[in-house]
């Protein structure tokens, strides 16, 4: 469970998040918002990368998060394979064999080709970057996923592919986007609108 209680975030004299509260149980919810409305800030507060000025974020015991950043945030100096397995290599004691198996399962799930693995991340296409970012986030099997504009800047085929992947993963969490069409494609029923620092449920 993820719970936000009266979270407020102010940059300078700009109130980006104004007293936001909500609880996330076991489903994927969508937050819709215009550019600059504070979607990224909200996700960063949930993931602990930013501290709220007032209020708090509560994660239940052993809750782990996977994040897909708006611009993918891949490690450019590493290959695709090194990027995806990095969290396992650095934070677990899995054997090479186990890591390899997990990697293969994920490639399979995301419909990614093995040919991609040896490529350096700095010359991937936008869609490939997003997919690698998703792969890297889910390899540790997090309880929740935070997707920041997973389809922005992609053509309609790639958008379709990525929404299909997200739907198939069935990992609960929060997806933020400025694009209502994406939410329709994902068939997410619980939707919120982030506007002027306020979060409102859309029916």
């Amino acid at each position: 469970m993820i719970k936000l209680i009266n979270v407020t975030k102010i940059f300078g004299n700009r109130v980006v998040l104004d007293n936001i509260s909500f609880t996330l149980e076991d489903k994927l919810i969508a937050i819709l918002g215009a550019t600059g409305s504070g979607k990224t800030v909200l996700l960063k507060i949930i993931s602990g990368l930013l501290k709220p000025d007032t209020g708090m974020v509560i994660l239940s015991d052993r809750t782990s998060l996977g994040c897909v950043f708006q611009h993918a945030a891949l490690f450019d100096s590493l290959t695709v394979e090194e990027n995806i397995v990095l969290p396992l290599l650095e934070t677990t004691d899995y054997s090479q064999q186990t890591i390899r198996t997990k990697l293969e399962q994920i490639l399979d799930k995301l419909n990614l080709s093995f040919e991609l693995l040896k490529r350096k991340c700095h010359n991937l296409s936008g869609g490939e970057r997003k997919l690698v970012a998703i792969a890297r986030a889910i390899i540790t099997e997090p309880c929740y996923m935070l997707y920041d504009e997973p389809t922005s800047g992609l053509d309609s085929d790639t958008t379709l592919h990525i929404t299909h992947v997200i739907k198939k993963l069935k990992i609960p969490g929060v997806l933020v986007t400025h694009d209502l069409k994406v939410i329709e494609l994902l068939e997410i029923s619980e939707r919120y609108l982030l506007n002027m620092g306020q979060l409102k449920k859309i029916d």
Binding site: G66, A73, D76, L86, P87, E90, T91
Partner: peptide, 21 residues
Amino acid sequence: SMKITEQLDALRVMKIDPKYF
């Protein structure tokens, strides 16, 4: 450059300390 492209944030989320890594 890694900082402004959020690569350090990505490490933190993965529970990898950028200072260590």
